Amino acid sequence: MNDASAAKLDLLTEDHRSRTSAKRHAPRTPRDAASLILIDRSHPVPRALLGKRGKSHAFMPDLYVFPGGRRDPGDNRTAMARPLCDAVADKLMQRTRTRFQASAACGLAVAAAREMQEEAHLSLTPPEHADCFRPDVSHFRYFARAITPPGQPRRYDTRFFACFCDELELDPSAVRDSVELHDLRWLPIDAHDSHPLPRITKVILSDLVQALEEDPSLPFGRTVPFYYFRHGRFVRDLI
């Protein structure tokens, strides 16, 4: 692990300690969730879409996050206009529970697309399927995974997908606020201090900066950083 990665993990560990020192919750099993890092690369510095969660949210209130949410049972059964790339689907099956099926992996991608539509009003359904929700997830990269540490009021095992607006012919100006997310903004991916972000979001944005420097195309089969908590400290593993 390099010094930058170690520094990120120290920040995550310290953030977890500060959040759990005042109030601890009973252990909770993390729920599968998905988030989509939508990237606008039409500017010199690529921008990512984030929105602010409301004050009443039990999980990450008043912070700017990527659109996303938990995987619903119906997501596993939703037909896709175009499926995940094989390399992405295969990677999603790694480091999972015994009962985790391929349908659940596909359901995570559907959940990310559904949440993008619900929270930012951006539809990933091609025009030929405009009469129903049938997303095109063929451009999704599996970018990162993070499990909320113990002691939080909500815990999620979140898979972060990433794709570019132009790949899906999305208009960045078409985003609209929702009940779940407001003040939606396209933030430069290196502007970590311009808005209040969860530390894990800052870490993933830092990973994105590095990944785009290494290969601006974001290869589909790239190694995926996996963040989780073990023995009192955050761990950065690779999938």
Score class of each variant (00 low, 15 high):
Arg71Met: 15
Val88Pro: 02
Gly68Lys: 03
Pro135Cys: 06
Ser103Gly: 04
Glu167Phe: 10
Thr158Asn: 07
Pro127Asn: 05
Asp136Leu: 09
Ala111Ile: 01
Ala105Tyr: 08
Ala112Gln: 05
Val88Tyr: 03
Val110Thr: 05
Ala191Pro: 01
Glu118Tyr: 07
Ala111Met: 01
Met80Ile: 12
Arg82Asn: 13
Ala79Gln: 15
Pro172Gln: 01
Arg70Ala: 13
Arg134His: 10
Val65Leu: 03
Ala112Thr: 02
Arg141Ile: 06
Ala146His: 09
Pro188Arg: 15
Arg185Asn: 10
Gly107Met: 01
Asp157Glu: 11
Leu197Lys: 05
Asp131Arg: 14
Cys85His: 15
Ala120Glu: 00
Arg97Cys: 10
Gly68Val: 00
Thr148Val: 11
Asp62Phe: 11
Trp186Gln: 04
Arg97Gly: 12
Thr148Ser: 15
Ala130Thr: 01
Ser178Ala: 15
Thr158Ser: 05
Val110Asp: 00
Ile147Tyr: 14
Phe164Asp: 06
Arg99Phe: 01
Glu119Ala: 13
His121Asn: 13
Ala81Gln: 12
Val175Gln: 02
Asp193His: 06
His121Ala: 13
Arg159Trp: 08
Pro73Met: 03
Trp186Met: 05
Ala174Leu: 04
Gly107Ala: 03
Asp177Arg: 00
Ala146Glu: 10
Leu168Thr: 06
Leu122Phe: 01
Phe164Pro: 04
Asp136Gln: 12
Pro172Ile: 05
Thr158Cys: 15
Pro73Val: 00
Ala174Arg: 09
Phe100Trp: 10
Leu63Trp: 00
Val175Lys: 05
Lys55Tyr: 00
Thr125Asn: 12
Glu180Arg: 12
Arg141Glu: 00
Phe133Pro: 02
Gly74Ser: 11
Arg71Ala: 09
Arg154Gly: 07
Arg159Gln: 14
Tyr156Ile: 02
Leu122Lys: 01
Asp177Ser: 04
Asp157Lys: 15
Pro188His: 11
Ser173Val: 10
Arg145Lys: 14
Met80Gln: 15
Ala113Cys: 06
Pro67Val: 02
Arg154Glu: 11
Thr98Tyr: 08
Ala102Trp: 09
Phe143Gln: 09
Ala102His: 08
Pro83Ile: 05
Val65Gln: 00
Arg141Thr: 03
Cys132Trp: 09
Pro126Trp: 06
Arg99Leu: 08
Asp75Gly: 07
Asp157Val: 07
Asp166Gln: 08
Phe161Asn: 04
Cys106Met: 13
Pro196Cys: 04
Leu92Lys: 13
Leu170Glu: 04
Asp86Gly: 08
Arg134Thr: 12
Ala111Gln: 01
Cys132Thr: 10
Met93Leu: 15
Asp193Ala: 12
Phe164Leu: 07
Ala120Phe: 02
Asp166Thr: 11
Pro73Lys: 12
Tyr64Ile: 00
Arg70Ile: 07
Arg154Phe: 11
